[in-house]
Amino acid sequence: MARDEEGHVSGRLLEVKGLSKHFPIKSGLLIDREVESVRAVDGVDFAISSGETLGLVGESGCGKSTLCRAVLQLIKPTAGSVLFEGHEIVGLGDRQMQPLRREMQMVFQNPQASLNPRKRVGEIVGSPLKLHGLASGSELKPKVQELLDRVGLSPEHYNRYPHEFSGGQQQRIGIARALATRPKLIFADEPVSKLDVSIQAQIVNLLVDLQKDLGLAYVFVAHDIGIVRHISQRIAVMKDGKIVEEGAADRICEQPRDPYTQQLLSAVPIPDPRENRTRRAAAARE
């Protein structure tokens, strides 16, 4: 694939232009009227190609999650356009969105809360297959078991309930469910932030392997810049609803241009005591 210096690839899977989501603030003594609005997402542009990962970083409240939901049309954007494979999806009705939902799936932060505790793993992973008419009856079980195998679970887990699994395994179930419809794009919203350090690496590596095998594109949302940088080709840094800087992952981390990006990166702790002492000594001399 041809890339320019910022790592952009031609032939866009998803193209977001001027996307905004404003939430009104209402106030008044008896009857509320809109006095101002929170610009949760404010004129965001980005694009992503097949097989690519875009990392989205920013601090809590910067609008990362709202952006994902607005792109997926889970909430109605205030303004802007979202092109998926060249087709506008803003303003589409539920029925018209249905086939597109197959193509764009989501993986959530809290695996425990995003899996129905009363359903068995087989039903959880199998339901998108049934919903989209991709499998039914006797084809269902082998397909689900193949998906479980794919994410590093065992086919015997088919009849178990989510609470019988550890956090990392629950996240694997969430990934299997997202993969069921053979999507082209997965939005992963803080998929590893609730997991232990040693398990985080396992899930990140799984996502990388799946991308290589299936040609998936990811929008990987996280506050941990180290992990985002590891998995992403490009990184977009968000602040107050806007993307303040976007570029190739290594470039963003090594030569950040925007002051906010610089501030964010300098706050990331360096797991290297000697280097920290050097940095502190340098800071003290200034």
Binding site: V197, S198, Q200, A201, D224, I225, G226, I227, R229, H230, D250, C253, L265, V268, I270, P271, D272, E275
Partner: peptide
């Protein structure tokens, strides 16, 4: 398993 933003990524 640490990621470091000041080093080339593995």
């Amino acid at each position: 398993s640490l990621t470091r933003i000041d080093r080339p990524r593995p």
